[in-house]
C-alpha cells in the first residue's frame, strides 16, 4: 500500500489529488485515534481538535525554534499531545460518561485560549511556518506530506488493529461494556484507561504535526476547527465504532464525500451532510457501515 502510494506521487500529475488525499488520510488517523478511546473503551472525546492543535503547534515551535526536520516534528507533536492525553486519562479516572466528554471539550477550549493569547505563536493572527523547498525523492513538498500522512495512516491502523486483538483491547472492551464488572473481574481499568487515552492523544498529535507545513500559515481558528472535532466523532460512528475497519471506512467515505462536496457544492452544505449522516446513523444504524454490512452478509 505504501509502495502504491509512493508510485502515485510519481505517476499522478495533478497536485490537487494530493491535497485532498492528505486531508482524507489525516481523518483516517484522527478517526482511528478517537476510536481507541471512544469506540473501544467507550470514553467520548469531544476535544479532538485540541489534541490535533497541540500536535500542530508543538511541531511548529520545534520547526521555528530548533529547525527540526519533519520526523522530529511529528514525534514531538505526538508526544506533546500524548501528555495531554495522559492528563485526560487522569480525568477519566475520576469522571465518567458525559462528564468526561464535557471535560475534554473544556480541555480543548482552555488549550485554545492559551494559544490565542500566546504571542510566540502569533496569537489569533497566526504564524507562518514554511516548508523546506526541496523534497528528496518527491517532485514537490505537498507530495512528500501526502506520503508522510499515508505512512501515519497505515501505522495508526496497524496500531489500532493490534490493540483490538490484544489483551489490552479486550480489557478496553470490558470497560466499555461494564466498567464495574470489568474491575471486579480483575481488569486493571485504571492503567488501561491511561494507556488508551495516551495512545489516542499521541496519534491525534501526530496527525496534526505536519499541518503547519501543509497550510504554511498556522492560525487557531482553522487548527481548532469544528470540522476536526465533528469528523473525529462522526467518522467512527458512521463507519462502525467497535472495530478498526469502522473509522477507516468512515473516514474514507465521509472524508472523500466532503472533498467532492466542497469542490462541487459548498463547504457549508457538506457540513450539513455530515450532521445529517451522523444523526441518521446513530438512530437507524448504531453499528455503522460495518454493522450494516455484517447484517447484510449474514
Amino acid at each position: 500500500m505504501l509502495i502504491g502510494g509512493y508510485a502515485a506521487t510519481v505517476a499522478i500529475a495533478n497536485d490537487y489529488y494530493f491535497y485532498a488525499g492528505y486531508i482524507v488520510l489525516q481523518y483516517v488517523v484522527l478517526a482511528t485515534a478517537w476510536n481507541i478511546l471512544g469506540g473501544y473503551a467507550g470514553y467520548v472525546n469531544f476535544g479532538s481538535a485540541g489534541f490535533y492543535a497541540v500536535g500542530a503547534y508543538t511541531a511548529a515551535i520545534l520547526c521555528l525554534a530548533l529547525g527540526a526536520p519533519l520526523p522530529v516534528m511529528i514525534l514531538g507533536g505526538g508526544l506533546a499531545a500524548g501528555v495531554i492525553g495522559l492528563a485526560a486519562g487522569y480525568l477519566a479516572l475520576r469522571i465518567k460518561d458525559v462528564y468526561f466528554a464535557i471535560a475534554t471539550l473544556a480541555l480543548a477550549v482552555v488549550v485554545q485560549t492559551i494559544v490565542d493569547n500566546w504571542d510566540y505563536v502569533g496569537g489569533t493572527r497566526g504564524i507562518y511556518v514554511l516548508h523546506p523547498h526541496h523534497a528528496i525523492g518527491f517532485s514537490n513538498y505537498p507530495r512528500l506530506l501526502f506520503f508522510t500522512m499515508l505512512v501515519l495512516a497505515v501505522g495508526s491502523v496497524v496500531v489500532a488493529r493490534s490493540v483490538e486483538h490484544s489483551r489490552f483491547g479486550r480489557g478496553l472492551a470490558a470497560i466499555r461494556d461494564d466498567e464495574h464488572a470489568a474491575e471486579s473481574a480483575g481488569v486493571p481499568t485504571l492503567r488501561l484507561k491511561l494507556m488508551a487515552a495516551t495512545l489516542s492523544g499521541i496519534l491525534m498529535g501526530a496527525a496534526g504535526a505536519p499541518f503547519p507545513y501543509f497550510v504554511s500559515h498556522l492560525e487557531p481558528s482553522s487548527t481548532f476547527s469544528l470540522a476536526v472535532a465533528v469528523n473525529a466523532i462522526a467518522m467512527p460512528m458512521i463507519g462502525g465504532a467497535t472495530s478498526w475497519a469502522g473509522p477507516v471506512i468512515g473516514a474514507l467515505v465521509l472524508g472523500g464525500a466532503q472533498q467532492i462536496a466542497t469542490v462541487t457544492i459548498s463547504s457549508v452544505l457538506n457540513l450539513l451532510i455530515v450532521g445529517l449522516l451522523l444523526i441518521g446513523f446513530v438512530i437507524f444504524a448504531p453499528e455503522g457501515i460495518v454493522g450494516l454490512a455484517r447484517r447484510l452478509l449474514r
Binding site: D97, V98, M237, A241, V268, L271, L272, G275, I279, I283
Partner: peptide
Amino acid sequence: DIGLRGLAFFFGVLFLAEVVLLL
C-alpha cells in the same frame, strides 16, 4: 443506549442548528 450514541445524537443536532443558521 444513552451514552455514546445519545451524546453523538445531540452533538449532531447542535451541529445541524449551526449549519442551518449559516445557510
